[in-house]
């Protein structure tokens, strides 16, 4: 049976969008087993990594930026998450070219661990910038507070995100691979 091209694209797009929506809805939730020190997994970061692992630089950057804007909408707009997730997308896309990173669960968990540490560092730098310049009156007052909080949060967030990464990576990756194979079949 041949699946018409347009309807295949639309289905793929809706499944992708639905997965983003699911991640957005999981953000405020604190389900049992998904919480450590009051911190939940960063689902959008896992999504960006899952998306970027097998895509090119521009697609990765676009996804990172877009999901960063979405996360701003879900929490606060200053400092913007768009920057940190953009960095994550770009770095993940660059990473795949190196042969020693395999596409198994362990590697994905490791990538997510590293990326979430990097993302938190970017956010902490943004906070430091704001508190140093005194631009936004309602952020941390002292640099030392930013980095103290950073230490508390980063490890918990990185651990949880990397542990939950396969739960999102596996189904998404499976779906996108099937779609890719269908596309190849219909093209040949």
């Amino acid at each position: 049976m041949r699946w018409p091209k347009l309807s295949r694209y639309l289905t793929n797009a809706s499944v992708t969008l639905a997965s983003v929506l699911l991640c957005l809805l999981l953000l405020p939730a604190r389900l049992p087993g998904m919480e450590l020190l009051g911190v939940a997994p960063n689902w959008l970061l896992i999504w960006v990594v899952a998306w970027s692992v097998k895509r090119n630089l521009w697609q990765a950057a676009l996804a990172g930026w877009t999901l960063g804007l979405l996360q701003d909408g879900m929490s606060e707009q200053i400092p913007s998450r768009a920057l940190s997730l953009l960095v994550v997308g770009v770095l993940t896309a660059l990473l795949k070219k190196q042969k020693y990173v395999q596409e198994d669960f362990i590697s994905v968990a490791l990538i997510v661990f590293a990326m979430s540490a990097i993302a938190e560092t970017v956010v902490a730098l943004q906070f430091s910038w704001y508190s140093w310049r005194g631009i936004a009156p309602f952020t941390f007052e002292r640099l030392s507070e930013v980095w103290a909080y950073y230490q508390d949060v980063t490890l918990a967030s990185a651990l949880l995100s990397s542990m939950w990464a396969p739960a999102l990576y596996y189904p998404l990756n499976y779906w996108w691979r099937q779609m890719y194979l269908l596309e190849m079949n219909s093209a040949s």
Binding site: L27, P28, A29, S75, R81
Partner: peptide, 13 residues
Amino acid sequence: LGRSADHWWQQLT
């Protein structure tokens, strides 16, 4: 219903 969507903030939904 929930907590903050980003752990840099302390919020409730």
